[in-house]
C-alpha cells in the first residue's frame, strides 16, 4: 500500500496555475526525488502536501487517510515532517528549542522520551556545530547552519515521511554529503520515506531511487534516477524544446 498518494492535484494562485493535475504515489521506504527548473511548481506541491497551500482540485492521501484540506498540524501528526523552502528557523528560540518544537506530538511516556533524547544526540552527532551552540539563538546562525538546523528539526519528530525542499541549498558539499548519509541511514533503519526536491538531477543519480521531473506544473518524466539522469531525455525535458 502506498504511504503517500496524490491524484490529479491542481494548485492555483489567483489566476496562475502553478501545478496542473499531478498524480504520483510513494510506497513506504521509498526515496523519491523531484527535480525541475525554477517555477516548475515543486515547492507548491510540497506545501500542498503539508497542508499549508490549499489545492484547487485533486486528492492527497497519507497513510491511507484523505488529508486534502486538513490542517498542517494534523498532517504532521500523521507522520509527515516537512522542511520548507527558505530556512524557516525560529530565530528568537535557541537551537535546542528549535529542535524540540516538533517533539510535542509524541506521547509523554518513557520510551518516546528516550527516543527524543537519542534523536537529539544523533542530530548533534551529524551536525556538531549545533551542539556547540545549542543554547545560542538560532537567528544568529549562518545560512548553512540554519539549513542544518531545519533538517535536524525535521528528523526530531519521528516521522514516517520526510519532505525536504532543496536540502543542499547553502550547504558546503561535504555537509550535503553528510546530510544525505544521515537521511539514507534513517531510511534504511526506520523504513523512513524520503521525498526530496532538488534543483539538479546530479544528487539523485548519486543516491539512486526514483526521480520525477516537473516542468510548467506538470510531470514530464518519471523513472529510475540513475537511468533517467544519464540519458539525453532529461536534458530535453529539463530545458524544454521551445526554449531553443
Amino acid at each position: 500500500m502506498s504511504l503517500l498518494a496524490l491524484s490529479d492535484i491542481t494548485i492555483r494562485y489567483s489566476r496562475l496555475t502553478a501545478v496542473r493535475e499531478v498524480s504520483f504515489s510513494m510506497t513506504e521506504g521509498e526515496i523519491l526525488f523531484i527535480t525541475g527548473p525554477n517555477g516548475a511548481g515543486k515547492s507548491s506541491l510540497l506545501r500542498a502536501i503539508a497542508g499549508v497551500t490549499p489545492v484547487a482540485a485533486g486528492k492527497i492521501q497519507l497513510a491511507g487517510q484523505d488529508i486534502t484540506g486538513q490542517a498542517p498540524e494534523n498532517i504532521a501528526r500523521l507522520g509527515l515532517s516537512m522542511v520548507p523552502e527558505g530556512r524557516e528557523v525560529f530565530g528568537s528560540l535557541t537551537i535546542e528549542e528549535n529542535l524540540l518544537v516538533g517533539t510535542g506530538m509524541q506521547a509523554r511516556d518513557r520510551t518516546s522520551r528516550a527516543r527524543t533524547a537519542s534523536d537529539l544526540e544523533a542530530v548533534y552527532m551529524t551536525f556538531p556545530i549545533l551542539k556547540d551552540r545549542r543554547n545560542g539563538q538560532a537567528g544568529l546562525l549562518s545560512g548553512g547552519q540554519q539549513q542544518m538546523l531545519v533538517i535536524g528539526r525535521a528528523l526530531m519528530t519521528n516521522p514516517r515521511l520526510i519532505a525536504i525542499d532543496e536540502p543542499s541549498l547553502g550547504l558546503a558539499p561535504n555537509i550535503t554529503d553528510q546530510v544525505y548519509e544521515r537521511l539514507i541511514a534513517l531510511q534504511a533503519q526506520r523504513q523512513l520515506t524520503l521525498l526530496i526536491v532538488e534543483q539538479s538531477s546530479a544528487r539523485a543519480m548519486m543516491v539512486g531511487g526514483r526521480m520525477i521531473l516537473m516542468r510548467g506544473g506538470q510531470i514530464v518524466l518519471d523513472g529510475d534516477a540513475r537511468t533517467l539522469g544519464s540519458g539525453e531525455a532529461i536534458q530535453a525535458a529539463y530545458f524544454g524544446y521551445e526554449d531553443h
Binding site: 503539508a50 499549508v52 498542517p72 498540524e73 516537512m82 524557516e88 518544537v101 528539526r153 519528530t157
Partner: peptide, 24 residues
C-alpha cells in the same frame, strides 16, 4: 514549559510551527 515553547514558536512563524505539529 512545553506550551510556552510552542507559543513562542507559533508567535514567530505560525505556519512552520503548525507543520511541526503545534496545534493552532
Amino acid at each position: 514549559t512545553r506550551f510556552g515553547l510552542e507559543m513562542r514558536a507559533a508567535a514567530e512563524n505560525f505556519s512552520m510551527a503548525r507543520m511541526l505539529g503545534v496545534r493552532a
